[in-house]
Simulated assay, not measured.
Amino acid sequence: MSSTPAAVTAPVVARPQRARVIAYVLAAVVVVVFTLIAFGLHGKTGDGPGYFQRGDQAAMIGLGLCAAAGILLMTRPKVEADAQGVRVRNIIGSYDLPWEVVRAVTFGRGAPWLTLDLHDDEKVAVMAVQMSDKQYAVKAAKRLRALHTASLTPSVVE
């Protein structure tokens, strides 16, 4: 049986809060704006140099959907941690690290997000825990630090 309290060893799952809301709203606005522009594109032969067809309108809507998909990449970051290790998924790329390779869990002064300092002097950004989320970020950082600290202390088996 472990001497570590259950609250410390409880798994941690965190995702950015504010950035996700902004990304969802912005993606919807981009799709609506591109759709309105697409329906505003019209013309016939003799009206000038531009002549827009249905394909041009569909392409404009498609561009809006592609831009929205790019914006929704901002909702991808997530961190999951338990007693064995931490899994970090950023916008591009992910890491699955055991706690043994993590030296420290830091939230540097002025840093936009949490970082994991590794023993080989590498740093891994944890974009899921963002400074803009204020108390949510502080709570997630404290829970991650507690899990890291608990992993460093040997458990007592009775």
Rank of each mutant, 00 (worst) to 15 (best):
R89V: 15
R18F: 08
L118Q: 05
V129C: 08
I71Q: 05
A6E: 09
P5I: 00
G50A: 12
K123E: 11
V32R: 01
V88M: 06
K44W: 00
P16V: 13
I37H: 01
M131G: 14
L147S: 09
D82Y: 07
I61E: 02
Q84G: 04
C66R: 02
Y24A: 05
I92H: 07
D82T: 06
A67D: 05
H42G: 12
S94W: 13
V25C: 05
I37M: 04
G46F: 13
A27Q: 08
V101A: 13
L114A: 10
K78A: 03
Q57Y: 00
V156E: 14
T4P: 00
I91V: 15
V156T: 13
R76E: 11
V79E: 08
F52L: 09
M127W: 09
K78P: 04
F52Q: 11
P5Q: 09
L147H: 10
M131D: 15
P49A: 04
P112L: 12
V31F: 02
Q17S: 01
K123Y: 00
V124F: 03
K142L: 15
Y136C: 00
A81T: 11
G62I: 04
A104R: 14
P98E: 13
H119A: 09
V124K: 02
L97G: 05
T9N: 11
A10K: 11
P77V: 02
G50C: 02
L63H: 01
I91R: 14
I91S: 11
K134I: 08
I91P: 10
S151K: 09
I92C: 03
F39G: 01
R103E: 15
V12I: 10
A141S: 10
